[in-house]
């Protein structure tokens, strides 16, 4: 069975390591924060100027001066820090963020990603996504394997305007974990009950399959 949003987030949380500084994008990536293993410490960065994002505030305690990059009210953890936007992107551009998780419209087997614009239909802007993908050491894309019309989102070429090129290292979808290697997509894990054949059928690019592909351990 394919994973729901929380399932994708839960699998991505397994990629977190103790001491990581992490930037989570809007949507499914934000949910990863709910699944951080208890035995490790991870510091979440918000590009609007906060290191050490805490949980959402209790009812009635929301502070309009304290938001995340999705403009949601948040809190801070002990040891958090505030700073201005240019310093925030010095952290990002300077390679100080260990892991970036973001959503995508399309990802290619070269690691290219489109995520910010649908010409003529939707122009919201790239926000910090281009800065993040151009600089992060490790980028994981959280996405459904196909779009709402059933078309593959994992392809050989992006049809929509690019956010960055040759930057995505790993994709966690509702069907699979796929690494982006020098030789293209490589299937690493299957969602529970999903067959290799189904994954290959729903991927719009060649996929390297070596040996038995294990199911995700959720």
């Amino acid at each position: 069975m394919s994973l729901d949003k929380n399932g994708i987030a839960k699998r991505i949380a397994q990629e977190l390591k103790d001491g990581y500084y992490v930037n989570l994008g809007i949507g499914i990536p934000t949910l990863v924060a709910n699944f951080v293993p208890e035995n490790i410490e991870v510091i979440l960065q918000s590009e609007n100027g906060l290191l050490g994002i805490g949980p959402f505030p209790e009812k009635g305690k929301a502070d309009p001066d304290l938001i995340n990059a999705g403009k949601q009210t948040v809190t801070t953890i002990p040891g958090s820090a505030f700073f201005d936007s240019s310093l925030s992107f010095a952290m990002i551009r300077g390679g100080h963020i260990d892991l970036t998780v973001l959503g995508a419209f399309e990802v290619t087997d070269k690691g290219d990603i489109s995520s910010w614009k649908i010409p003529g239909k939707m122009v919201k802007g790239m926000g910090g996504a281009m800065d993040l993908v151009a600089a992060a050491k490790n980028i994981i894309v959280a996405t459904t394997h196909t779009d709402r019309h059933g078309k593959p989102k994992l392809k050989t070429k992006c049809d929509l305007p690019l956010t960055g090129i040759r930057c995505v290292k790993k994709i966690v979808s509702d069907l699979a974990v796929i690494d982006v290697t020098d030789k293209g997509f490589k299937l690493m894990e299957r969602a529970p009950g999903v067959s290799v054949e189904e994954i290959l059928e729903k991927t719009g690019a060649p996929v390297i399959v070596e040996g038995d592909i294990p199911e995700m351990n959720l």
Binding site: S85, S86, F89, V123, G125, G127, G128
Partner: peptide, 18 residues
């Protein structure tokens, strides 16, 4: 923006800040 009444220059956020 889509109707062309407004000119818009979209800049990556970190580039804009810098």
């Amino acid at each position: 923006l889509l109707s062309g009444e407004l000119e818009v220059d979209l800049v990556p956020q970190g580039t804009l800040a810098e």
